[in-house]
């Protein structure tokens, strides 16, 4: 338990004593992840096969249709 506590403290102290540039970098990471997962993924990048079909068999049939169109 004390080992876990010291690991947690290591991270907490690390974040607390971060210099200014590192805080900026963390802001960039968080903004980037927000844009990626809550804007891009949610509104612009649905998984077409998961969204449009219920079973793997339907997905496989659709893909065969796509790749064999002539």
């Amino acid at each position: 338990m004390s080992k876990l506590k010291s690991i947690a403290l290591f991270y907490i102290n690390g974040f607390r004593t971060m210099p200014r540039w590192a805080r900026m970098v963390w802001i960039i990471i968080l903004v980037k992840l927000f844009i990626m997962f809550f804007v891009l993924k949610l509104f612009f990048f649905p998984n077409i096969l998961k969204k449009n079909f219920d079973t793997d068999e339907e997905r496989a049939n659709f893909v065969i249709e796509q790749i064999t169109r002539n």
């Binding site: 970098v25 960039i28 990471i29 980037k32 891009l40 990048f45 096969l49 997905r59 790749i67």
Partner: peptide, 28 residues
């Protein structure tokens, strides 16, 4: 560290594109 932070997770966007723009490919 700065470079690592700016680059981290940008590769994940490629996976979004696989599912949307290249669906037949990502299945195949």
């Amino acid at each position: 560290g700065i470079n690592f932070a700016c680059g981290v997770a940008t590769g994940l966007i490629l996976e979004f594109e696989f599912g949307t723009n290249w669906a037949a490919y990502s299945w195949f």
